[in-house]
Design a protein around this nucleic acid. Structure first.
Lengths: 228, 228
DNA sequence: TTCATACTTCGATGATAAACGAAACATTAA
DNA sequence: TTAATGTTTCGTTTATCATCGAAGTATGAA
């Protein structure tokens, strides 16, 4: 008996952890590339490509060609609504003990998402910037305030250079493990590079883990304090 | 990386064709047995049993033990709503769902459930007793009130004789066609026997249908009126 | 052109789980 | 008690599919 109602098809599409992670990332509303989605799901791009083809075939996502990029978005609000319903149902009971994201504690704490900082520290950084009005959550994206521009310049980020890149300066990226947004965009990438430069952290060989030194982590917490 | 967001677990539960068929059958709101659900999904009972265990573990369905039957229902309206959303989404592909046909009206109205009255009239009887405080819904079972004892004695039920049997006097039994409880237990059996005795009804040969005479049904409605 | 980047397709491998036969378990009927 | 019915558990087989390496396609840059 292979025939079944179509809910089985939709269910099986959402039922794979890698695909569910990619769909979760797309719930931010932003269009993401295959590479970014692969990084979010923790799989290679070729695996992600086959997943994305199936999601598109099932009508859950749309693909926009743009140069050598393919931008993926949720097909429409109904899909987003369905995912929200499932999250609500999952949060209600029974599933709360199930871990999300990577089980490796190091990966959960800090990892590279494409080229910016993800994990608990990544979420903390954006939270801190938001709480101190360095970043303004306007509509769909994030905007750097004047306050924030000064802060970034003071930290050694060349905002003028960043302004010339085609990539958006700031954008939120829904964190895979924490389920909150962290800072992506060219600014997010620049900040992570700056952390490398000043020796706060380095990327573990061949993995996505970002290791902070003891002093680096202390400085990080001082620069990006969490609001009480 | 096998870990994923909670929606992956829910999705994978719904994503299996056999489980999707069983959930679809349960969307009628009726409580169904494992055997019925197995037939609905076109699989053997032992396979269905393992599927049902997983669905219950995932919080999508509830199981009620009743004699040698296990009645399964959707856990709550949220689950039904989620399934409806998925069907709506799937319907955009042009697939129209097949609904199960109507049942035998006589069986739906009144039938023997083991040795007591089930069907619409059975549900009505318990509703009426509950509304007039003849029966008290305490905890998991039902208790006859003093008011109820007098009522039963007046109808010709020998409660003292019933009190000696090991079976519980009153207990609720989830109705197969309606989705409400009707009265089981030794009292339920005694009442049905009494209906036979005084000629209100008789059991159709070889079937589970209970046929009420015209006067019997009138008397029944007078004795067990539904609350407005 | 040639190189680099972004993505897709192909092929092989491995892990998961769906399926059912057989047997145990549980409850009711006689 | 024995027999019958409904359900679950166990063990095995089988098929699917997620995954990644390697190779192929497409677009943009030098």
């Amino acid at each position: 008996m292979k025939e079944g109602p179509d809910i089985a098809l939709i269910g099986s599409l959402i039922g794979d952890p890698a695909r569910a992670n990619m769909l979760t990332a797309l719930m931010s509303g932003r269009a993401l590339t295959a590479s970014e989605l692969a990084a979010e799901a923790g799989i290679t791009v070729q695996t992600a490509s086959s997943h994305l083809a199936r999601l598109e075939g099932g009508g859950l996502i749309l693909r926009r060609k743009q140069g050598r990029h393919r931008y993926f978005t949720l097909a429409d609000d109904d899909v987003g609504g369905l995912l929200e319903s499932m999250m609500a149902l999952a949060a209600r009971g029974g599933y709360t003990r199930v871990r999300t994201g990577p089980k490796d504690p190091a990966l959960r704490k800090a990892r590279a998402c494409y080229n910016h900082l993800a994990g608990e520290l990544g979420v903390q950084m954006l939270d801190s910037l938001l709480a101190r009005a360095m970043v303004d959550p306007s509509e769909d994206s994030l905007a750097l305030t004047n306050n924030g521009r000064a802060f970034m310049e003071g930290f050694g980020i060349d905002l003028d250079a960043l302004g010339k890149t085609p990539r958006p300066l700031c954008k939120p990226c829904l964190d895979w493990s924490a389920r909150r947004s962290h800072l992506a965009g060219s600014l997010g990438a620049a900040l992570l590079n700056r952390f490398y430069e000043i020796g706060w952290a380095h990327r573990q060989n061949g993995t996505r883990v970002i290791e902070f030194s003891a002093t680096g982590e202390n400085e990080f917490h001082r620069l990006f304090p969490l609001p009480a």
